[in-house]
Design a protein around this nucleic acid. Sequence first.
DNA 1: GCGAGTATGTTGACGGCGTCAACATGTGGC
DNA 2: GCCACATGTTGACGCCGTCAACATACTCGC
Lengths: 214, 214
Amino acid sequence: MNISEPAGEVAPRAYHHGHLAEALLAAGVELARVGGPDAVVLREAARRAGVSATAAYRHFDGQTALQQAVKEYALEVLSEHMQAAAAQAGAAADTRPASVVRLEAIGRAYLSFALNERGLFRTFCIGLPMPEGVSLDSDQPAFGVLTQALDAMTADGLLAPEIRLTAPLAAWSAVHGLAILCLDGPLADIPDQERDNLFEATLRMVLHGLLVRP
Amino acid sequence: MNISEPAGEVAPRAYHHGHLAEALLAAGVELARVGGPDAVVLREAARRAGVSATAAYRHFDGQTALQQAVKEYALEVLSEHMQAAAAQAGAAADTRPASVVRLEAIGRAYLSFALNERGLFRTFCIGLPMPEGVSLDSDQPAFGVLTQALDAMTADGLLAPEIRLTAPLAAWSAVHGLAILCLDGPLADIPDQERDNLFEATLRMVLHGLLVRP
DNA sequence: GCGAGTATGTTGACGGCGTCAACATGTGGC
DNA sequence: GCCACATGTTGACGCCGTCAACATACTCGC
């Protein structure tokens, strides 16, 4: 999804904007980044795109549609983060199985995205229907990278097959919950180091809770 | 906190309402129950209290103050739920240690509150500063009942002392995350039975992840 | 090449919201 | 009994989402 104005293309004309949908989405993303989902406001997005308030209705079916688009964008960025982390995992010296290291890396990527892109993450969280019914299928990149890691763990004999189906959501719940508690909850302003400790403790709980007993 | 209009007290006068703060809070709670935090709207609350729009400003310092009050109310209700569940736990035949059963009951109470009082739970979740800095101290009832259960588990030798401090937040993260995924996330409309399975699987992950190895 | 049809953007309006200032009306303390 | 204060009202402002009616530019078939 290309967000920024296409660089060298035809310059926007006087009347017809040319790339209004993209410009509105870019404005919406910026609004979300700064102010969270509630800040994704149609009139302001239109203003930033240099266009009248109601022009947005030619491209988005109302405010929630724009929020939904921003949400999808946020999901894409999050997915890329997680995939990049999973790909890089194992570079450092680590005696544990690669699949476990990868699962941990995914969790850490999720949390770091939540903390570094708070507004975007919050927008990704809001209660709009997930894009095209993400659901539990692994065709969604963000969820897919998680299920792949768990598949690898199952293949390695580290995950009991009978919990293979519930494991991704249980793990996701723990990491997601921790992210939310750190953003909106009582952990909003704990020192960085304490928060990191909590990250590690939660990841340990997830791993110990999922792995087969040695 | 008394929410409803005091039954047999002095009837509201013509000009001075008499119990406007309570009436506004009650209206706010009702709005939150139906529509979540965004539905907690000053003008509508005032309307329901039979009072002009700006009268609310004599009792609440703007909209966020009313939302905050509703949030505190929601936290109280949630705490009572959890405490009641913890107290009742162990009534059913269960061969496991009482402290473990209690911890499970608390988690289930949290989830059932989230599902049965969606609007209120969502309001409780919003990113306003927790009432009087709930933080990690166990003087908050909802958090206290959790730490007590974990203390009991530690005393029973079921929880390693070195994770005693991080355990409550790790456990809370998992249960909270699952609740959110069920309300706003991809698990919004899975069948009840699948959701219950997921509950149990997540609780198992938490318990296995926290308990010392037998 | 050109004209009709459509895509895109504008103006104006409506009601709802939060919020402030100025004003009105009760209530309680002296 | 009177005055200060608490409480509630009115009116206004600017923001928002949204709709209908209108204006302009592009495009495609001829």
